[in-house]
Design a protein around this nucleic acid. Structure first.
Lengths: 159, 159
DNA sequence: ACCTGAACACCGTTCAAGT
DNA sequence: ACCTGAACACCGTTCAAGT
């Protein structure tokens, strides 16, 4: 990677982080390029899809989240996960993106470990799968009062 | 309402129903107008927002859903609600729209009645509110395997 | 009273031309 | 090898001009 290319890449990620924070994950990519001072073509070569850019922006955050798994219970970790998924909608998109395969795998193994432990302890139903949890989190993240809804889902509406 | 205006209105709703079915609730409004054979301005006067058009398109469906409430349990009705919310994403948008206030009120009273009955019977936790259910449904509707997730939320992940 | 459709400011995306 | 930015086809939305 040439020096100027590397510089553009980094600057695009930084700028995109700011723009996504301001305007959400649907923010205009042209504006990201504009603010970064590059042409739209430059953005598109570095990041062929919007998801690729989202993954680059949120990768660090995801890695941190995975690192925290070992110090938490499943329920605690899911709540933190939800906070991230809520504050930047990009995290949900990242989960579905093929360019975020490594992030996805890391999250999977982090969640999988916590889930297995909880199930062995009899705290969580045996038929629950990792994908159930991911899809629950990313689905609820879009809704208002998402944390309340997560509590509801964890405890169960019926009783 | 003048005769031609009424005709345009009806034709727009019919066309929009087809277009939304094909391309989802984010379909181009210009294309709806194009297919209906009217100018975009005509569409915008009849339906000042996209939500207004969505409400008009799905009103009938919502009324049916409300009518079915009396013959179902809460859990059954929520599942049917979720099917609607899944197959046309417009139903979720309708819930949030101010131009769908009457639909919203109807859904509210239908769900409220079922919820109260279930709570009196001790089948549902006393602290659950109607809004919890609405937001849960509309949130989960976006996710893959939404029905599975609803079952999970009803029964509870933890156990 | 209602409709038309050109017009505006935007968007995502591509690609020839430059350095 | 990488960048530029004009260009294309679209979008939502508005509004003067028509009937």
């Amino acid at each position: 990677m040439r020096a100027d290319a590397q510089r553009n890449y980094d600057h695009l990620v930084t700028t995109a982080r700011a723009v996504f924070a301001e305007e959400g994950p649907d923010a205009s990519l042209n504006e990201v390029a504009r603010r970064a001072g590059v042409g739209p073509g430059t953005l598109y070569r570095h990041f062929p899809t919007r998801e690729a850019l989202l993954v680059a922006v949120f990768r660090e955050r995801i890695l941190t989240l995975c690192g925290q798994a070992s110090e938490m219970t499943l329920a605690e970790w899911l709540r933190v996960f939800l906070v991230h998924a809520q504050t930047d909608g990009g995290l949900s998109a990242t989960m579905a993106s093929s360019s975020g395969l490594d992030c996805h795998a890391l999250l999977r193994s982090a969640a999988g470990g916590l889930l297995a432990k909880a199930q062995e302890a009899g705290e969580v139903r045996a038929d629950v799968e990792v994908d159930d949890l991911f899809q629950l989190i990313t689905g609820l993240a879009q809704a208002p009062r998402a944390q309340r809804l997560l509590d509801l889902a964890l405890e169960g509406v019926m009783r």
